[in-house]
């Protein structure tokens, strides 16, 4: 995962609440291999793609090319756990979403992919959405270490879980941290098998009612 600290690019203001992950990437595109890039499918149904009309979405605004920041209303990324929603944001180029609240699974997926879910108050989100920097496509500065967002004369503080902040700043992957815990995992497992014998999956074909098992 690529470390993140300062972003200074134009932003995509999206004045919508409850932007669910079905909207971030409609299910019909999730069959694609990731290597092909998910960026073109980001918010696909909001972008008039393939309708013959030009997209009026700010995602396709040439003035905002290179935008790495998105600003939205409450409960961004609610719904389906699909990490593809984060892949679509990331492959498009977004490294930070600013909103008053986030779906829990989305926020966790974002961190795993080096995307910052920056939490601001509802009033600050409205100010940012209405700011000339956002409406005119001028650069907005997000500083993770300082937890600030600077949009022209507007300075807004954001919150982020300190654990996530450290992870983003360093670009750490969980798996490396976990591998160092191997001895603790093995100890826990040995003790747990005795404490909760009922929790283990019984093996043996007979518990499968002799039904054919495809494995």
């Amino acid at each position: 995962m690529e470390p993140l600290n300062i972003i200074e690019t134009p932003a995509i203001p999206l004045a919508l609440a409850n932007v669910d992950t079905d909207q971030l990437i409609p299910a019909r595109f999730m069959k694609r291999p990731r290597a092909a890039g998910y960026g073109p499918f980001l918010l696909y149904d909001l972008r008039n793609i393939g309708t013959g009309q030009a997209s009026d979405s700010l995602l396709d605004d040439p003035q905002r090319a290179g935008a790495a920041v998105m600003i939205a209303r409450r409960n961004f990324g609610c719904g389906s756990s699909r990490e593809a929603a984060v892949y679509a944001l990331l492959d498009y180029g977004i490294r930070c979403v600013i909103a008053p609240s986030f779906g829990d699974i989305f926020a966790s997926n974002a961190i795993k992919n080096g995307v910052l879910p920056a939490r601001v108050s509802e009033a600050d989100a409205e100010e940012l959405l209405a700011s000339p920097s956002a409406t005119e496509g001028r650069a907005i500065r997000v500083d993770l270490a300082a937890q600030t967002i600077i949009a022209g004369n507007l300075v807004v503080l954001f919150t982020i879980d300190p654990v996530w902040k450290t992870q983003l700043l360093n670009g750490w992957d969980d798996i490396d941290l976990t591998m160092a815990e191997r001895p603790a995992i093995d100890r826990f497992r040995a003790q747990d098998l005795r404490a909760r014998p009922w929790a283990a999956v019984p093996d043996g074909e007979n518990t499968f009612n002799n039904d054919p098992v495809e494995n």
Binding site: E83, I105, K112, N113, V163, I175, L177, T178, E181, I185
Partner: peptide, 20 residues
């Protein structure tokens, strides 16, 4: 609880998850 693909990979590899 539901998890994303990176967490699925983590569980596959370790049968554990970091959670707050």
């Amino acid at each position: 609880f539901g998890i994303g693909a990176s967490e699925v990979a983590h569980v596959l590899m370790t049968q554990t998850l970091w959670q707050k």
